[in-house]
């Protein structure tokens, strides 16, 4: 009998690679009796969905260039010395 740690790891494993029929059944059985693991299953999907969203991927694309950062630093340094 697998514990919650093993089951939730197995849930992630199943998203990365093919798992055996036995493991798939173990997840199903465990989920039917364990509320926390059902919750983990849903949360894992929600996190995937958020992180795969276009919006999320775009967020990381907005950056200052090195040049802009240097200018900002100079500006702030002068302000902090006022």
């Amino acid at each position: 009998m697998k514990d919650c740690q093993e089951i939730t790891e197995l849930i992630e494993r199943s998203k990365v690679e093919r798992i055996t029929l036995g493991d798939r059944l173990a997840i199903g059985m465990h989920k039917s009796i364990c509320r926390d693991c059902r919750q983990y299953f849903r949360d894992s999907d929600s996190l995937d969905e958020l992180m795969q969203s276009k919006r999320f991927r775009h967020l990381s694309e907005y950056t200052f260039s090195d040049d802009e950062k240097e200018k900002l630093k100079i500006l702030l340094k002068s302000k902090s010395e006022d």
């Binding site: 775009h58 967020l59 907005y62 950056t63 900002l72 630093k73």
Partner: peptide, 22 residues
């Protein structure tokens, strides 16, 4: 209240920009 402005820019600017763009 001396603060390392260089570190501040390095650590926070891109996050703040993403926040603004959201």
């Amino acid at each position: 209240n001396i603060i390392d402005t260089g570190k501040l820019v390095e650590e926070q600017s891109d996050y703040l920009l993403s926040f603004a763009m959201s």
